[in-house]
Lab assay of single mutants.
Amino acid sequence: MASQGTKRSYEQMETDGERQNATEIRASVGKMIDGIGRFYIQMCTELKLSDYEGRLIQNSLTIERMVLSAFDERRNKYLEEHPSAGKDPKKTGGPIYKRVDRKWMRELVLYDKEEIRRIWRQANNGDDATAGLTHMMIWHSNLNDTTYQRTRALVRTGMDPRMCSLMQGSTLPRRSGAAGAAVKGVGTMVMELIRMIKRGINDRNFWRGENGRKTRSAYERMCNILKGKFQTAAQRAMMDQVRESRNPGNAEIEDLIFLARSALILRGSVAHKSCLPACVYGPAVASGYDFEKEGYSLVGIDPFKLLQNSQVYSLIRPNENPAHKSQLVWMACNSAAFEDLRVLSFIRGTKVSPRGKLSTRGVQIASNENMDAMESSTLELRSRYWAIRTRSGGNTNQQRASAGQISVQPAFSVQRNLPFDKPTIMAAFTGNTEGRTSDMRAEIIRMMEGAKPEEMSFQGRGVFELSDERAANPIVPSFDMSNEGSYFFGDNAEEYDN
């Protein structure tokens, strides 16, 4: 993207840094990872977990959730003011799984939030270390993106479920800051804005008074975040219109849905970061690795190297396929839920299948599930090659597409044709070009129609051997075009429920 120079890199967003050079960025990201790792080690000690239990991804998720809940100030305040039966607002906890007599047992633990905050700050040299908290939120978000298709949420806001490739980060909490905003897809931002506008339509006082002023500035800020994701002048001009509207209503909703559809071809720039579970960072720190000293990046080879040398386990339900569970977590670790499966298959070195073909449910185990038949197995999170994460949407291309997802959002900077089903997408653009945004709409449609099938995206960008740390010898991959490109292809993934 041309304006790259004016933006802070995501590592800076990730670490609240002012302008830093590459070495400083690597050190501050490393410091953040160190903090998460030290916190995780301490929690495993508190909970008396064995090494194996500490490497269980379900335990990692519970521990991450506990610290996120302990620092969720708004919710904590709300819980104190609106006490609900049987919930102690000062405590947080969740299921911890232990191996007892050759069987997995679930144990519900409860801790004072104050105590968890103390352990977290102690692991982070006394700081609140917001960057580390956001990092864990993005890992949870990436896992949700890989596990669930947001059909219901899309339909509720009037969008087409086939636009799911635009929904990265749709389950990120509001408090995820600049680093969170960077990884949100165009569809996620559109959905947040539509929800806001709908509230304004239904509630006369939404934009009024002292609160209304705050609401208005939040609305304009979200519009600017979305505008910054678009790469064409016409899309940005249309966002200006939406932002400046005196009284946002149905016309703005129409414009936003139009823009979301246009992003299936004229893709937005959305950041991709490899955020790993805390149970990967903990053992690495415990083994003596100093992330701050060595430096770390979320968008280069580092996460690949770390996963190459990590042992992570997962509980497996009786009829689940461990290899499929591994694929789910591998995609989440690489922030690749909406990437082209052919690119992923090449990088991973084994075939990556669409969601609907995987015999696996989510990673988390519900409290009512029976533990008797639970097994555990090693997650295979290694890769054959590594590639640089991208934040450009890439230019655009036609490809055989599917009944489910009709476009992709690249996660890796790797040369390819970008699949999208042009006739299906263009069919949504018939007729409606009147109104105050008509010239911009016409211009956007013209650009979409001009998108050429034979153009290559990320020209000359390749993948790298894991021994090639400096990215000196790019390998331009070859793809098996007979395979499906979309992950949520004609899909039956479970729906995400809060």
Rank of each mutant, 00 (worst) to 15 (best):
N124M: 03
T433K: 00
G462V: 07
Y97N: 13
A401N: 00
R355G: 13
P453N: 15
S69G: 00
K325C: 11
S314C: 15
D128C: 12
K98M: 08
G177L: 08
C333S: 02
T378E: 14
K325G: 11
W330Y: 13
A178S: 06
E107Y: 07
S335E: 09
A22H: 00
Q241V: 13
K7V: 11
A337K: 08
D480M: 06
E484W: 04
S478Q: 05
Y97K: 05
I116L: 04
K305P: 02
R199S: 02
P173V: 15
K48C: 04
M371G: 06
A181S: 05
G282P: 12
G450S: 04
L381G: 03
A493W: 10
M456E: 06
Q58Y: 12
F464T: 13
K305A: 04
M167E: 07
P477S: 14
S367N: 00
I445N: 10
W207F: 12
K90Q: 01
L344I: 04
S413F: 13
A179E: 05
S402E: 00
K293V: 08
I36V: 14
L379M: 15
L259H: 10
H140T: 11
T146L: 13
R261P: 08
W120I: 11
S367Y: 02
P83C: 06
D101Q: 00
I316V: 03
A387V: 14
P83T: 02
R152M: 09
D497S: 15
H324I: 10
A237F: 10
E454L: 15
K7F: 11
F258Q: 07
R436K: 13
N21V: 15
M448L: 15
M440Y: 15
G93E: 13
S353L: 01
Q149G: 13
L47A: 04
F420L: 02
L328I: 09
S392N: 08
A22N: 00
T62H: 02
G431A: 04
T15W: 10
V183L: 06
K90F: 02
G132A: 14
D480A: 01
A70Q: 03
S359P: 13
P410E: 08
M136K: 14
S413L: 13
R243V: 07
Q235R: 14
A263W: 09
I57G: 00
D88Q: 03
D372V: 01
L256T: 05
D240F: 12
F206A: 00
R246D: 07
Q42T: 05
C223W: 05
K31E: 08
S457D: 06
M167H: 06
S377V: 15
D34M: 02
R99F: 10
R416N: 03
H82I: 04
A471S: 06
S141V: 08
K351G: 04
P474R: 00
F458I: 13
R152L: 04
F304R: 06
W104D: 07
S3V: 15
Y97D: 02
V476A: 13
A373T: 04
G185K: 08
E115Y: 11
A336Y: 07
E454M: 08
A493G: 04
L193Q: 06
E469F: 04
E294V: 02
S60H: 07
N319H: 15
I388P: 03
G268V: 15
T45W: 04
A129T: 02
P322L: 14
M448Q: 12
S392H: 05
M13N: 05
V476E: 14
E244Y: 10
F479P: 15
T130G: 04
G282R: 05
E14V: 12
F464V: 00
M222C: 04
S84F: 01
I445P: 02
V183Q: 06
F488K: 11
F291L: 14
M136E: 07
R416L: 13
G177H: 04
M448T: 12
L133E: 09
G295T: 07
A123G: 01
T45S: 04
N144P: 13
S141H: 08
P474D: 09
G485W: 00
G132T: 03
I119F: 15
L328W: 10
S274N: 06
I119L: 04
S28D: 03
D16P: 02
Y10P: 05
G282E: 06
K198L: 14
A27H: 00
T146R: 03
E115H: 05
T23R: 00
A2P: 08
A85K: 00
S28T: 12
N498K: 15
S326V: 11
F346Y: 04
G300A: 04
D128S: 13
M456S: 09
G180P: 10
L306S: 04
T157L: 03
W330I: 07
S274P: 14
A234Y: 02
I197V: 06
A271W: 09
D127Y: 14
L306Y: 11
A387W: 11
Q20F: 09
I445D: 10
I475S: 05
G431H: 14
A411C: 00
G228P: 13
K229G: 04
S326F: 11
Q12K: 02
P322H: 12
K198T: 14
P354F: 10
D160L: 03
D88V: 12
E252C: 08
I388M: 15
S50N: 09
Q327A: 14
R317Y: 06
Q415K: 08
G126H: 07
S287E: 10
E73L: 15
S438P: 09
G288W: 10
Q308D: 04
S482C: 04
Y52I: 15
R436Q: 10
G169F: 13
E294K: 06
F420H: 00
N202C: 09
Q409W: 15
D145L: 10
A129W: 09
L193G: 15
N397K: 01
G209I: 11
E454I: 13
N498Q: 06
S486I: 10
R55M: 15
E320C: 05
S482D: 10
N321S: 15
G228Y: 10
A22G: 08
P419C: 06
S392F: 05
S269Y: 07
R382N: 00
F291R: 04
S467N: 01
N125I: 13
N321V: 02
A366T: 09
S50L: 04
V67Y: 10
T433E: 01
W386N: 09
L264E: 06
Y296Q: 12
S457V: 01
E339N: 12
K87I: 04
E192Q: 15
E320M: 10
V280G: 14
V280S: 12
M374K: 07
V190Q: 07
T130Q: 01
A271F: 09
R204N: 12
M222D: 03
E454T: 03
M159G: 03
I444T: 00
V312M: 12
P477Q: 11
E254A: 07
H82Q: 07
N144W: 11
N59H: 15
H135S: 02
Y148V: 08
F230R: 10
S274I: 10
F488G: 11
T134S: 02
A234M: 12
F39M: 03
Y496K: 11
H272S: 11
P318V: 02
L466M: 01
E244H: 10
T157S: 14
Y97C: 09
M137W: 07
G435H: 11
I316E: 10
N124L: 04
E465T: 10
M189W: 04
R150V: 09
Q409R: 07
N309S: 01
Y296K: 12
A472C: 00
I301P: 13
E294R: 00
E11N: 10
Q122H: 14
L256H: 09
R221K: 14
S402C: 03
S438G: 15
A366G: 00
C275T: 07
R26D: 06
E80T: 01
R221M: 12
G30H: 09
A260I: 10
D497R: 14
L143F: 05
M159R: 12
H82V: 00
G435E: 12
T171W: 10
S287W: 10
I316L: 08
Q231S: 01
N224K: 02
E14H: 04
R446N: 03
K87T: 13
R470F: 11
S176H: 13
P322A: 14
S482A: 10
S165G: 00
N483A: 04
L276A: 13
L381Y: 06
S217Y: 06
T188I: 06
A337V: 14
R195L: 05
H135N: 06
R204Q: 13
V285W: 07
F39N: 04
M238L: 09
R361W: 10
